[in-house]
Design a protein around this nucleic acid. Structure first.
Lengths: 341, 341
DNA sequence: CCCCTGAAGTAATTCGCATTAGCACCTTGA
DNA sequence: TCAAGGTGCTAATGCGAATTACTTCAGGGG
């Protein structure tokens, strides 16, 4: 199936034109210069038959010889189209699609990877990774065991988002520079007059979380309060912050920033007058808040785009640099201002 | 030179397992029954190597021999991820992805199709349709020339959305029954007491437009006013409707319904008291309106889902019925009420 | 002892195309 | 007259996997 019964081949054309298959191929590829030449007369006869029959070369057969299939895999740890994951994946995918289009590649979504515990796994019984020439990996957190195996197998891939080394070997990625972005925001807060800062968020686990905390630590020193999400109650969290004399709080997840701001408001405190707040990246979960948070912008489409570019380069053996960090643009919101005192 | 780094072949597997390439192929395809059998011991050894190396057959080579690859193509006439086309494509794709996951297929997005005049083309120099086992086609309007060619070539495909025959041969599709949905809405309006109806929209071009008008005509008879989009000014359109004594207007595109309602409001007319309005399908362009329109709901995810199911059936030769129409659920909005008089 | 059968596996071929090597037929020039 | 060189074309090969048509070996029956 798939194959039309009467599909034409170069042999058919050759027979019709009274030449060999080789000649047809040569005519088609205009290889007059390279060694073999074709008499104009013959060439015209062949072209004529080709035109009359509407023959077109089978792209598969062509590709077979070139050894690259122009298929790039895209692996996501969840289905991409449901609206629950849409806000997270789509900006990346937009860049990926655009870049694939530019380099003439098709994208293979690994929907065949079975979902287990709400997550897909790259490596499973009968994994089909190698169907693609290489693969772009997408996900907030990627199990390091899977990365190790990919690296060990020498499979060409690029992660979207910075990744720690796997077994001491570098993992190819295109990431965003959360360390610097966060540090810059701290500097800006300091320039505003703030002296006591706090970080709210996991700060560990995914590289993206660790990097934010690292940037924060680098800029403020190590003694600043660090509150993990362990304290789920925004009111209590707020109380602890104020108790510690914090005037500027850096929140990893926008949803938590919103909750904290709400808690502040309910106590008659105003942002940023009584407490400055900074979020560390665009929301991945849609959040409606009237507040325009100060923070930074993650260049998601660019990350996707460059991930594909990097992968293509790797596939062509055209690069040795396999890690790229993109800068984040700071956003001037309304939640950072001079401290009250 | 172009060799994908580390791409394994059956020869590699064979060498590692100490067998011939034939044996590897036989093991992979479970052809123990057909003539050649493999000792369990050998089979395990081969499977072991395959699992250890993560080998997967080259889809192109397999397709050359007319085999299936568990790869379903998805062709869209525009990129799918930009937010401009998101609202239109995503609901379909959600169903497609889900269904593909269930049947263990991967999805190949044909991003390699070059965009020309803001639209992709299926058939172009080097089209790679045949990389996939079959293909789901997505788009409001699909050039009939492309459909004809697909049918003529015997390529397995399924359209999302009803399509007219191509050169007298049926085009496989999973569509929505706009004819009935529209007709039912007319009936409901009649039950409310309305007697003079109008249809606003192109009513021609894409099958989806034609079907809506057809349903409208069937239910009201042929003499009802039909206003094409030729008159772009909502106020003028409104005037003509009222002049014709129309009390219930059926609008194909929600955005135009909104404009019309706004025009009515600005003249002090209220919907539905002075004019009832019905929209014919969920908005494809995001529209913000406080009105909850009466109309119907297009089962987009189900369409995508069933399109994949149908395609899989076709690929396995398990069906002869290649056209399905799904019903649309009517929505009880607030824009249809009894006429004023 | 030889033929037959079944089991287990392999060599050879195929798909459609690009490429390489080489063949047969001219001209030349000496 | 013959090697040298050019011209115009074709046979053969390979890409990776599936399939067909063998081969090889062991055991059993006559």
């Amino acid at each position: 199936m798939g194959q039309a019964p009467g599909r034409l081949t170069q042999r058919d054309i050759a027979r019709l034109a009274g030449v060999s298959q080789t000649t047809v191929s040569l005519v088609l590829n205009n290889r007059g210069d390279a060694g073999a030449r074709i008499a104009p007369e013959t060439r015209d006869r062949v072209l004529r038959v080709i035109r009359d029959t509407g023959y077109a070369a089978d792209p598969l057969a062509r590709r077979m010889l070139k050894q690259l299939n122009q298929i790039l895999g895209v692996f996501t740890y969840e289905p991409v189209f449901p609206s629950t994951s849409a806000d997270f994946y789509h900006p990346f995918l937009r860049g990926i699609e655009e870049s694939a289009e530019r380099s003439g590649c098709d994208l293979l979504l690994f929907t065949s990877a079975p979902v287990r515990d709400g997550q897909r796994r790259i490596f499973h019984e009968n994994n089909r990774l190698r169907v693609a020439d290489g693969c772009v990996l997408l996900g907030r957190e990627i199990p390091s065991a899977e990365l190790s195996r990919l690296v060990a197998e020498g499979y060409p891939f690029v992660c979207v988002g910075r990744r720690d080394d796997a077994d001491g070997r570098p993992v190819p990625y295109v990431g965003a520079d959360y360390v610097n972005a966060t540090a810059q925001l701290v500097d800006r807060a300091r320039a505003c007059g703030h002296r006591r800062f706090a970080f709210v968020g996991p700060g560990t686990g995914a590289e993206s979380s660790a990097d934010r905390l690292a940037g924060f630590r680098r800029a403020v020193g190590t003694e600043a309060p660090f509150l993990s999400v362990g304290t789920p109650d925004p009111a209590e969290r707020l109380a602890r912050l104020l108790e510690a004399g914090v005037t500027a709080v850096f929140v990893e997840v926008e949803a938590e920033a919103v909750a904290l701001a709400a808690a502040a408001a309910s106590q008659g405190l105003s942002v940023p007058r009584d407490l400055s707040m900074v979020t560390l990246g665009d929301p991945t979960i849609p959040v409606d808040s009237s507040l325009d948070f100060t923070g930074f912008h993650i260049p998601r489409p660019q990350m996707g785009q460059q991930a594909v570019e990097l992968l293509v380069d790797v596939l062509h053996g055209q690069t040795s640099v396999t890690q790229r960090l993109l800068g984040c643009e700071l956003t001037h919101g309304e939640t950072l201002g001079p401290p009250a005192s």
